[in-house]
């Protein structure tokens, strides 16, 4: 018998006659949050990421200021008036860049989380990982209150990266310190 058949047979024997279950979903599907942008900004800030709340019309200008002299990876699909970047997909090119500028797929206010799904303006996964600086623009209408709404909006067929603050570790005495292998600086521009 193959391992597959044997494991499945053992499972069937093990659970034969076990009671059926049902899942109570009494938890909140969404939360009443009066100021989604404010809550999201506060929670991102808690992770020691840098947050800017900027009116939509001023976003291109602010991005240009923030990018400054940095040689940025800028994936395709972002507005034409945002800073231009250098191309680059190979690991060496990414490693040589100063940072990466992206949009996102959805953001979660309660947890201060940004989710990327490699869609337009988000690049491949490596592009937001290897450069040490990540500048991410979140549109106010992309922010949901809690995790259930975010899960509902996302497409599992796409590779997803959930980002909550800069890379960090709690491995030394269970105290969180920022800055390990992922981008050590996360800067978030919330476009309102």
């Amino acid at each position: 018998m193959s391992a597959r058949e044997e494991i499945l047979a053992k499972v069937r024997r093990a659970v034969a006659g076990a009671p059926e279950t049902s899942v109570p979903r009494g938890y909140r599907m969404s939360n009443q949050v009066s100021d989604l942008v404010g809550l999201f900004a506060e929670r991102v800030d808690d992770y020691r990421a840098v947050v800017h709340v900027v009116p939509a019309a001023e976003v291109p200008g602010r991005l240009a200021e923030l990018v400054g002299e940095r040689r940025m990876i800028v994936p395709e699909g972002l507005p034409a008036d945002w800073p231009r970047g250098i191309g680059g997909t190979s690991v060496a090119e990414l490693d040589a860049a100063d940072g990466v500028l992206t949009g996102c797929a959805v953001a979660i206010a309660e947890t201060g989380t940004i989710v990327l799904d490699t869609g337009p303006g988000q690049g491949r996964r490596a592009q937001t990982l290897v450069p040490d600086y990540h500048l991410c623009v979140v549109r106010a209408d992309q922010i949901v209150s809690g995790v259930p709404e975010a899960v509902a909006r996302l497409d599992p067929a796409r590779p997803l990266t959930w980002i909550s603050g800069p890379s960090a570790t709690s491995d030394i005495e269970l105290n969180r310190v920022e800055g390990v292998h992922g981008p050590r600086t996360l800067e978030v521009v919330i476009s309102t």
């Binding site: 995790v147 899960v151 590779p159 980002i163 909550s164 269970l174």
Partner: peptide, 30 residues
Amino acid sequence: DLEVFLQLLPRSSTGERMNPYTSMWTGSVE
């Protein structure tokens, strides 16, 4: 079901609202 476990796990384990990174992939990617 992830809407439940992505709330339960980070808060129970590192005591954070969310851990810095969560990766999700389906089959062969990129």
